[in-house]
């Protein structure tokens, strides 16, 4: 194989590494900020070399409300994953195995449509609906709202993972007398397990990160971490010690998950759109 490079490798490496550094500096900055005392954060002689302290984290966790919001975030994200997969996965199986073209393109249009609708459009009906049912500021209302936004993504992503499962496997099971549920549970899901895991993690990330609906639909009891962090910011003279350490704690699990699913990220995000 002939590989010709347009520019010397050294130049290209330098450019790429430069971009990477640029991309990571703001991230590094907030991590450093979270490990500094307030005095240190304003001291230009202690930018990179300083005595790190966990004081900010201690302050953040000592309060107890942060742990409460952490619990909310975990429960809501896991609940969203369970509901979205339970609804989206069987449907994605039917769509991926269907020979009815109009049905497939309707399913596609639906999963894209919900993506096009700005989530802001849902805030008024959801807010009023939740109030009517008396479920404002509970885990349930967030789980249901997030599931609605994530089911199309789940379908979109699983659809392409299920398409990758050879149909010969279905047919073999079918000859052995298996019905659709058995094929789905015993054949498709185990074979597509990595894709299923990646989709679950992607859904977790979406729910964990969501801000707007959490802002509108929760107040004190069910508040999630992103809303809590903005709360530290809201007052005049934001407490950057709390903001930065909170931000670091919120992004930590996301960083870990991203490393885990990096191989499946592309397919999970755009599904069949790129594979044709």
């Amino acid at each position: 194989m002939i590989v010709r490079r347009p520019l010397p490798v050294a130049v290209m490496t330098a450019v790429t590494v430069g971009f990477l550094a640029l991309a990571l500096v703001p991230l590094l900055w907030i991590v450093l900020l979270s490990l500094k005392t307030q005095l240190q954060s304003f001291d230009r002689t202690q930018v990179f070399i300083f005595l790190p302290t966990l004081d900010n984290y201690r302050r953040l966790l000592a309060d107890g409300t942060f742990l409460h919001y952490l619990l909310n975030s975990v429960v809501v994200a896991i609940g969203t994953v369970v509901v979205s997969l339970a609804v989206g996965a069987p449907a994605a199986y039917v769509v991926s195995r269907s020979r009815w073209r109009e049905f497939r393109s309707a399913a596609l249009a639906y999963s894209l449509f919900v993506r096009i609708v700005p989530p802001t459009v849902f805030i008024i009906p959801y807010f009023l609906g939740a109030r009517l049912l008396g479920v404002n500021d509970t885990w349930w209302v967030l789980i249901v709202a997030y599931a609605n936004l994530n089911i199309p993504l789940v379908m979109w992503s699983l659809w392409s993972f299920f398409n990758d499962v050879p149909r010969e496997l279905d047919e073999a099971a079918r000859i052995d007398g298996a019905g659709h549920w058995q094929i789905f549970l015993r054949v498709i899901l185990p074979v597509a397990a990595p894709g299923l895991t990646a989709t679950a993690i992607l859904t977790f990330i979406m729910a964990w990160n969501e801000f707007l609906l959490a802002l509108v639909l929760t107040s004190r009891e069910a508040r999630t971490l992103p809303v809590a962090i903005v709360g530290f910011l809201a007052y005049e003279g934001a407490d950057w010690g709390l903001v930065s350490s909170g931000a670091v704690l919120v992004m930590a699990p996301i960083v870990a998950f991203t490393v885990l699913i990096r191989r499946y990220l592309v397919q999970g995000l755009v599904g069949g759109a790129l594979k044709g």
Binding site: V9, M12, T13, T16, V17, L20, A23, L24, V25, P26, L27, W29, I30, L33, I205, W208, N209, F211, L225, P226, I229, V230, L233, W240, V243, S244, A247, V250, M251, I254, V255, F257, T258, V259, R262, L265
Partner: peptide, 29 residues
């Protein structure tokens, strides 16, 4: 660029971070 390939997961971090954190960290910066 092989040396950079290893760092790929770091490259993609910004898009998976909570948008609130993205905002907060740029504001701080």
């Amino acid at each position: 660029i092989r040396a950079v390939g290893v760092l790929r997961p770091l490259f993609i971090l910004p898009m998976v971070l909570p948008p609130v954190v993205v905002g907060v960290l740029w504001k701080a910066f």
